[in-house]
Design a protein around this nucleic acid. Sequence first.
DNA 1: TATTGTTATACTCTATAACTATA
DNA 2: TATAGTTATAGAGTATAACAATA
Lengths: 150, 150
Amino acid sequence: MTRRTPPSPGERTPGERTLGDLLTHTARTLRRRSMSALEPWGISPHEARTLRVVGRHEPTRLGAVAEHLRIAPRSVTGVVDALEDRGLVAREPDPDDRRATRVSLTPTGRTALGELDVARAADHEAFFARLGERDRATLARILGRLLEDD
Amino acid sequence: MTRRTPPSPGERTPGERTLGDLLTHTARTLRRRSMSALEPWGISPHEARTLRVVGRHEPTRLGAVAEHLRIAPRSVTGVVDALEDRGLVAREPDPDDRRATRVSLTPTGRTALGELDVARAADHEAFFARLGERDRATLARILGRLLEDD
DNA sequence: TATTGTTATACTCTATAACTATA
DNA sequence: TATAGTTATAGAGTATAACAATA
């Protein structure tokens, strides 16, 4: 039987959409916004995210980047390649383990990261503006909860 | 409001992650879960979502499906093709407008949708379980707010 | 002229598996 | 044997632009 339960106070979601749909659509809307916001730099949201992770942990192993981004090692190769092609990050051999590779920001990458952070902050500000401080904090708490034992 | 400090570039949320990162990661986690949950049916989350939209509005024009899913018309063609190939939906000419095409569920599609709804409900229940009724409602409210004038 | 949907094309993000070079 | 990263390959999801048929 199709789900046609009358709107119960706790469960009703606006627009006949499930929590999952809402989450999916919100994330996609954000991604689209970010793509536009990042257009001047010719960089994708995923690449920008990776640049931030590298900047926060440099010099860092590729495997560590994968963990921070929660993506497969294979996927790191691609995005780091893209960033390296643009001269934003550089690979170097890990002195402690010759199997491993470390990545760091280049001077260009550091400059770009600074600019991107400003742009991202502005864009997030615009997107999350309507929420107000309190709802933002609540949203962060709830999402953090959902990711807890990731 | 006394709180006027603007979120500085690089605003951080718990775990060194921005609200945007949290949203992105949560949505991706859910998508991965859904992919696994839907595996027995050989159907993707996107396809399942489309099937639900069709089921809720059938018979409905392809353009309307695009609006409900908030995707480009071009993208509807692909996903409806996939569903039609599996015999879950059927295209038919719109009697009122010969440019338009309508889609409806097939009997097979209707059965599948019922099963999928149960599976989805179970999976969402598992994913959102740790939140509790109140946080779920709050999350729905906040996300709904972010999508408001979409 | 405007709208409906399709074809053609391409980009972003992600995964698994097999391989290499180390450890 | 196990780990770090790569190559090879694949698939999901989305977009723009040009077009044909119809309004």
